[in-house]
Nucleic acid binder design. Structure first.
Lengths: 246, 246
DNA sequence: CGCGATTTGTGCACGCCTTCACAAGCGCCT
DNA sequence: AGGCGCTTGTGAAGGCGTGCACAAATCGCG
């Protein structure tokens, strides 16, 4: 975790926007709030109470208020939050107003689907380049983009202004790709390969392992099954839903 | 399957295995340990120290020891952990020795990829049925399975012994599918649709939102960018990688 | 203009998780 | 047999996150 004095830093308030250092848990929930807010805006809502937004995002209202209070005071007591103002604020904090350029490496089964996933474009991201090591794949067009050879990655990162790399290769190739991305200057990586990546300090890696999610569910399933067998076991204690995010 | 009293659990030790209630954080890491252990076993390692396993799984060694200590004492001081014994233990705890049957609903872009993802089969799961509401999709064969209409879901859950449902539909259809799954008796759901599902108590929902992961990375990217603009800003303090999991 | 209804923002306490540091235990070597 | 080095298992401390409960603030209405 980055070390960062933020407190008040007296004189540095220049052109640089004050950047509150939010708790990780809060950051992980902001996108959820954002999605709920977009839905509300589309439905014509002008303002929304913390209670209403919390319900739409599936969290506790006190938690939501505390999260939002970290960004500043964007609500009005007795009224609620201004939907569009809050959307702008969260999008600014998340850096989504820049429509970040994303490179995707590995257009196998999963990568192919990710390349065509429209949930990215609609939420501030543009996949601008596809790469693969397999010459069989190179040259193919996916969703309007031509797959390029992974050797061109370095040039593309600079030319296309790529700031985030997505790895959807087999695990054996993932570390090499990560090294290439880092060498090219990418400092944020989303890794779908089931393996641990080692990267230098200053590079952020988030990992999504689809099988792990199933395994966690399997554990709870196993536990529930063993509880039903217990004498007097109260079945179905209130589990509620867990969202990924560290 | 060696049974193992670990705490004290006085008299209730019947035929039902004592089920330690592990911390959620530990559960979320067990699959990671398991993957590392499989790699080690394949590489021919017989035993592994906590230090070594922790490195392979990308965690702190103290954390790993505490996690494993919750399952019981499966290590030998001065030596380390027996790889195959630990694999068996973790797989038992996670309920992976049952090769759970999984139903996948929604064979669009993402669902198609998930249906063909071999990472599931290799880690204890069998996708045994595919469903879609679109009649255009019904009847098509994907990876050896025929897509069926979502109306047959209920019967299939019973007949095929399905315990986990995966939702990869558009968000507008997700709640309906979740209701169907719950009505059919499924108590564990993995949701890829970007929306909040409401389910009765006793049903576990885990959510994976690919765009959210990118948004979190975007935040850190934004933050890093604003730090480089700071006077005397130490760029690149040690971030390290975060894994998903609640 | 004041009052009540409503909703935000937050101080506080509690519990979970992480991390350190070390005693206890095991195997090997002499 | 005894000692030494190595590794596990765990007590304790600290930090982070959550949720309650309430004071502060705003709007609308009489």
């Amino acid at each position: 975790m980055s070390q960062q004095r933020h407190g008040n830093t007296p004189g540095n308030a220049g052109a640089v926007p004050a950047f509150p250092d939010l708790p990780e848990a809060t950051i992980a929930r902001l996108p959820e709030y954002l999605r709920a807010l977009h839905n509300l805006a589309e439905a014509g809502s002008d303002t929304i109470s913390s209670e209403g937004l919390a319900a739409a995002a599936g969290v506790n209202s006190a938690k939501l208020r505390k999260d939002l209070s970290h960004l500043g005071s964007y609500g009005t007591r007795g009224v609620g939050y201004d939907v569009t103002l809050l959307i702008d604020q969260i999008e600014y904090i998340l850096g989504l107003d820049q429509r970040r350029a994303v490179a995707l490496v590995g257009v196998g089964n999963l990568g192919h689907a990710l390349a065509g996933y429209d949930g990215f474009a609609s939420r501030g991201f543009r996949i601008v380049a596809l790469f693969d090591a397999d010459l069989e794949q190179v040259g193919k067009a996916i969703n309007g983009l031509t797959v390029r050879h992974v050797g061109e990655l370095r040039r593309s990162v600079v030319e296309d202004g790529i700031t985030i790399g997505v790895i959807s290769t087999p695990p054996s190739a993932a570390q090499g790709v990560a090294d290439d991305l880092v060498a090219a200057g990418v400092t944020s990586i989303l890794n779908f390969a089931p393996c641990v990546l080692s990267v230098p300090a200053g590079v952020d890696v988030r990992k999504v392992d689809l099988a792990i999610e199933l395994q966690i569910l399997s554990f709870h399933e196993h536990r529930k099954a063993s509880l039903t067998a217990l004498p007097g076991g109260l079945v179905g204690e209130g589990e509620n839903q867990e969202a990924v995010g560290s």
